[in-house]
Amino acid sequence: MRAPRQPWLLGMALLAVTGACGGFNNGPLGEGSVRGRILDADVDVAWVSVFGESELMTGVSSDGRFELEGVPARTVELFVLASRTRAARVQVVPRGARIIDVGDIDAPPGAFITVQLRSDDGSVPEEGEVEVEDTPFDDLPVDPATGELRVGPLPAGCYVLEVDAKEHAQKEEQVCVREGEERRLEVVLSRGDDDDGDDD
């Protein structure tokens, strides 16, 4: 064929280089909100968090209602602290850019773990702290006089407790508790490098 010289070729070329504009963003679709109501909630202490996403946390209103925003739209567990003695874990599947309602949560009695902290020389370490991983129970100070700390209420399940103290090596302990259980856990820390002396 002959080399075409028709203007339409130029037009096509111009159109082709016009490129594109606009686009799509799925970011807002990756999070949702979860709402519900905690029955017999103690407004002063009640909160709701996402297990593993402890920064996602909210309190409850006077009637026990809560709405937790920015929850990843995948299967998660809510960590619900209803009162000083009751707690629950609730599995939910938030939907992207939407609000789901988990309904009423009737939290059962929670478990308590009493941590008895000692140094390997038998003394009570200074500035001892306990953290329950993936929960808002973070940087809980141990009684410097007795070396004890009562953590709870915790919903039935297994937890990793991270125990730390000044001039002692950090230590992790996995503990599984049942509903309403009172559990005592003795933790002996070795003197040594304080990893970071921080509260992680």
């Binding site: 096509m12 159109l15 016009t18 504009c21 799509f24 807002p28 679709l29 850019a97 939407r98 609000i99």
Partner: peptide, 28 residues
Amino acid sequence: PRVAALWMERSFQLDLLNQDERYFTVWP
């Protein structure tokens, strides 16, 4: 060969997102 102008739009009417997104391109 062909050249097409393509305009697409997607709209979300969700609890937390009420938004239209558009895309336009001219491409061979």
